[in-house]
Design a protein around this nucleic acid. Sequence first.
DNA 1: ATTTGGTGTTGTG
DNA 2: CACAACACCAAAT
Length: 292
Amino acid sequence: MSELATQEVSAGGVAPRGDYARVSAAIHYISDNWRAQPPLDDIAAHVGLSPFHFQRLFKRWAGISPKEFLQALTLDHAREMLKGSANLLDTALELGMSGPARLHDLFVDHEAMTPGDYKRRGAGLQMTYGFHSSPFGSALVMITRHGVAGLAFADSEDDRPGVLADMTARWPCAVYEHDPARTAPCAARIFDSRRWKPEDPLKLVLIGTDFEVRVWEALLKLPFGHAATYSDIAAHVCTPKAARAVGSAVGRNPISFVVPCHRVLRKDGGLGGYHWGVTRKQAIIGWEAGRV
DNA sequence: ATTTGGTGTTGTG
DNA sequence: CACAACACCAAAT
């Protein structure tokens, strides 16, 4: 009803030419920087507008919001990751079955807990944990003396307690000790790709049910920069019908990022979900795209 | 575009 | 033992 009024206000700056330049600059900026998933504030600042103005201007010209545009670019790239991976996955998985059970870009050596250990709900386990800054927000790292057992993400200081609770609930009988000094080197290494060395693999401990561990092991074989669908994974560990079961298992992946659950996408081309927020999944995909 | 009916695994009562 | 919940999927509206 007040459309006329708003039109008049924006007509104050009689320069659609300038508007076009700004939108165009924004599109280029987003296309160049989508890997870093820049927040609205950054993009707005780059074209010299307040976030509020910019968001409205962009939507008027492009038909979609800056955020939607960013998501579309990410999705495009995710689908590219999927392209050649169909056969690649089969061979990687088959080969990895008989050969050494390890290895992707972040060289990893893992051992799974026995089902018996799993049933004890972590009893007898000593977990040392700490929060550390990462490219994807504050990262909670949990280690046992056998290796890394947990990696989770928090958006802010405020949801750290919730994230910690989420993780400790998975092994309720374990003993937890807060000691960031001990987990810091581990965190530093995980997020610095220059420190990924085959001769000194990162040790992981996979604590889960038999089925879950099989799924997570499959994820470890997905090559950097490639992706698979939930049903691809299902076909390998069980039957293609089990895509949904795989989804749940992937969702319970306790060592996110290291076990690359962000490389699993929906068959219909969608991104699928992410336990720590789809935005984070996008960010990690972008981070990888920047290092192929 | 949305809805529906089909899936396997897991946690709960 | 049954049942509901789930980071899914394909086919039918």
